[in-house]
């Protein structure tokens, strides 16, 4: 029973890691840079949701949709104002920029919403079901279902829409994408919007389980490990890596001495780098360029 219980919380935590990892990978695949503020974008998304749902007291679904809209615009603005002027600069400069962006976002969030932890008023908070001896929280179920739904949408988007295919094209061969007339720069803006939206969804989904505060974005580091475990470049790999990190973390918490749970993500990362350096899904998606 205990194993199943751990598995449930591991999976739901893993989904959150996976969604943040998805944001890392999306931006990396399209623009070849790593956005270290991905976790903080999740935090901002969660606070925006708090604003709509707790403070303005909008119905949950409307608040969620408004959050998605706000975060899409936020992602586009970040790309246009901060990242696009950096085109052509050395990689590490861009990296430092995103790390700096994380600091700024945390400070701004603290200034606007305060440093007190908050709880998002989701309608399903507190609901639990007992199945056999296992307790299943509605918030955990919501995370898993929400993640599945989002992954399904993304799959359909990348597989069947013109825009989704163009995003793939731009990430597989940027120059050729330019040559066929794909507006690559606009595509980059949209990729940022997409990963900001995914981050916001992760924030809203995780909010009922973990508290919302300006430092919640630090789970982004674990999600980063998850992305590497998954192969850093594969979208399914990101989700799988997230699940793996989430589950291992739970079991490490129970079976290993205290403290191991916190570092288990990195231990997993090290093991993965030694055993299979290219990550779980490396063979599926090799980049040509």
């Amino acid at each position: 029973m205990e194993v199943i219980q751990l598995l449930i919380s591991g999976i739901s935590q893993g989904c959150v890691y996976g969604l943040i990892a998805l944001g890392f990978v999306l931006i990396y695949k399209a623009t070849e840079m790593v956005n270290f503020a991905q976790g903080d974008m999740m935090m901002i998304g969660a606070f925006v949701a708090v604003t709509f749902i707790n403070i303005l007291e909008w119905p949950f679904v409307w608040g969620l949709l408004a959050t998605i809209g706000v975060m899409a615009v936020f992602g586009i603005l970040l790309e246009r104002l901060l990242l696009r002027p950096m085109i052509g600069e050395p990689h590490f400069a861009v990296l430092m920029l995103t790390i700096g962006l994380g600091f700024i976002l945390r400070a701004v969030a603290g200034a606007i919403w305060g440093n007190e932890p908050r709880v998002l008023h989701a309608p399903y908070v507190g609901e639990v079901w007992r199945v056999g001896g296992v307790i299943i929280g509605a918030d955990n179920v919501a995370i898993v279902l929400g993640t599945l739904f989002l992954c399904g949408l993304l799959f359909l988007f990348f597989r069947f829409t013109r825009l989704g295919i163009a995003m793939q094209a731009a990430s597989q061969n940027q120059l050729a994408a330019y040559y066929v007339g794909i507006p690559v720069k606009r595509i980059f803006s949209l990729v940022w919007a997409l990963s900001a939206v995914i981050a916001a969804c992760a924030g809203v989904l995780t909010a009922p389980v973990s508290l919302i505060d300006p430092l919640m974005g630090f789970v982004g580091i674990k999600a980063f490990a998850a992305a590497i475990v998954g192969g850093f470049g594969s979208l399914p790999g990101a989700i799988l890596g997230g699940l793996l990190v989430g589950i291992v973390e739970q079991f490490a918490g129970l079976y290993l001495p205290p403290g191991f749970s916190e570092v288990s993500a990195y231990v997993l990362l090290l093991v993965m780098l030694m055993v299979r350096p290219a990550g779980l899904f490396a063979t599926m998606q090799q980049k040509k360029v």
Partner: peptide, 16 residues
């Protein structure tokens, strides 16, 4: 575009 299908490659040619 190496990981797009031939059909998708051609359709991307007509993106605009």
């Amino acid at each position: 575009f190496p990981f797009l299908t031939v059909d998708e490659n051609l359709r991307m040619g007509a993106f605009s």
